[in-house]
């Protein structure tokens, strides 16, 4: 159980950078007035970020991942979150075994 001073410094740098991004949005909305158009733009952010995070997995990683993303999306229409996630994990494992990664 040791902590290398260089590693500790790196962890602090990562923590400071991350903290800055977390506080940044609050500072932003203090200095920018939010009208109806700005509000609509802000409302587009959540789905746009989520889509961007999963897009490479969904579209260009491989057929197994694309299939599993589709299966998860379909399952999400009917099932609660954990069941839909389990469906996705199951489908990706089976698809990778069958068609390779």
């Amino acid at each position: 159980m040791t902590v290398d001073p260089n590693v500790f410094l790196a962890i602090l740098a990562m923590a400071a950078a991350t903290m800055l991004t977390r506080i940044g949005g609050l500072l932003l909305i203090r200095f920018v007035t939010i009208g109806p158009q700005q509000r609509r733009a802000l409302e587009a952010i959540p789905p746009a970020v989520l889509m961007a995070v999963i897009a490479p997995t969904a579209l260009v990683t491989g057929p197994a991942e694309t299939l599993a993303v589709l299966a998860t999306a379909l399952a999400a229409m009917r099932l609660p979150l954990l069941a839909a996630v389990a469906t996705g994990v199951f489908v990706v494992a089976v698809a990778r075994a069958m068609i390779g990664t």
Partner: peptide, 14 residues
């Protein structure tokens, strides 16, 4: 398939 748990959660939230 456990690495897929993270993107799957995002799909459901999306």
């Amino acid at each position: 398939g456990l690495d897929f748990a993270f993107p799957a959660v995002f799909v459901v939230l999306l």
